[in-house]
C-alpha cells in the first residue's frame, strides 16, 4: 500500500529526514517510535502533503507517486492524518466541517454526496460509538475542546471518512487512561484486512492497547531498528539511549 524509498526532507535548511525506507501492506499496523526531534512528526506532515518541505526520494501509495498530489487529493484517496495538535478553527461549526469533508471525499471517490439528514444520522451513530456528546458537534471546530476531546474528534473523523491508510501522530499524548482506551477501541474497531495504520508515538502506552505488527525505531531521520511488538516493550524498559 505504502512504499517509501530513501525519503529525505528538509525545512528551513534543516535536514530532518535522511533516507527513510518503509513498506506498509494492507491490514498491517506499524508503529514508529523515537526520541524527540528524530523526525516523527515530519514524516506525518510529509505523508499528508504539508507545504514547506523540500523533499527527495520516493513515496508511492498504491503504486502511484504522491509527490504531485495536494493534501486534499491525498485525503480524498484515503490517506488520513490524526494530528498531534488538532487545530482550533473559530467560527467553523464542527458538523458543517465534517459534512463538507465527508462529501468532498465521497465526491472524489465517485460516491453520492450525503444530504443533511442522512449525514446527521450517520454522525450521531459514529459519535455515540466513541462516547462523544452530540453537543460537541454543534460547537466550533475544536474551539475550547479539552486535549482528550480533540483527540476523540480526530478518531471520529477517521471513522467517518473511512481512510485506507491512517496515520496517528502522537494521538496518545495528553490523554487520560479512559480517553486512551476509547481512542484505542475506536482504532481497533476500524482495523480490517484492507486498512493499514501507521502509529507514531513516543511511548509504549498506546501500543499496550493497539498491538502493532511492526515497531520501527526512528533516529536522526532514519529507521535504525525494526522488530515486532516486543521491541516497543523493550524500549519502554531500557529507554532510547541504549539503541540510539
Amino acid at each position: 500500500m505504502l512504499n517509501i524509498k530513501n525519503l529525505q526532507a528538509t525545512i528551513d535548511n534543516k535536514h530532518i529526514l535522511r533516507g527513510l525506507n518503509l513498506n506498509i501492506k494492507p491490514g498491517e499496523v506499524h508503529a514508529i517510535m523515537g526520541p524527540n526531534g528524530s523526525g516523527k512528526s515530519t514524516l506525518a506532515n510529509v505523508l499528508s502533503g504539508k507545504n514547506g518541505y523540500d523533499i527527495k526520494g520516493e513515496i508511492k501509495y498504491n503504486g502511484v507517486s504522491l509527490s504531485k498530489l495536494s493534501t486534499e487529493e491525498r485525503a480524498q484517496k484515503g490517506i488520513f492524518l490524526a494530528f498531534q495538535y488538532p487545530l482550533e478553527i473559530p467560527g467553523v461549526n464542527t458538523n458543517t466541517f465534517l459534512k463538507t469533508s465527508l462529501n468532498s471525499v465521497r465526491k472524489a471517490q465517485g460516491e453520492k454526496e450525503l444530504d443533511t439528514l442522512t449525514f446527521l444520522k450517520l454522525i450521531k451513530e459514529k459519535a455515540s460509538e466513541l462516547g462523544i456528546d452530540e453537543k460537541f458537534l454543534s460547537r466550533q471546530l475544536n474551539v475550547g475542546f479539552s486535549g482528550g476531546e480533540k483527540k476523540k474528534n480526530e478518531i471520529l473523523q477517521m471513522k467517518l471518512l473511512q481512510p485506507k491508510l491512517s496515520i496517528l501522530d502522537e494521538t496518545d499524548s495528553g490523554l487520560d487512561i479512559d480517553a486512551l482506551r476509547i481512542v484505542a477501541d475506536g482504532v481497533n474497531s476500524y482495523k480490517s484486512k484492507e486498512n493499514a495504520f501507521l502509529i507514531i508515538t513516543h511511548y509504549q502506552r498506546l501500543l499496550d492497547y493497539i498491538k502493532p505488527d511492526y515497531v520501527h525505531v526512528l533516529s536522526n531521520g532514519r529507521i535504525i531498528k525494526t522488530g515486532d511488538a516486543d521491541l516497543g516493550v523493550q524500549l519502554e524498559k531500557t529507554g532510547y539511549s541504549n539503541i540510539v
Partner: peptide
Amino acid sequence: HYLKSRGIPE
C-alpha cells in the same frame, strides 16, 4: 492544511 487533510479543496 488541516481542512485540506480532510479532503476539502483549497
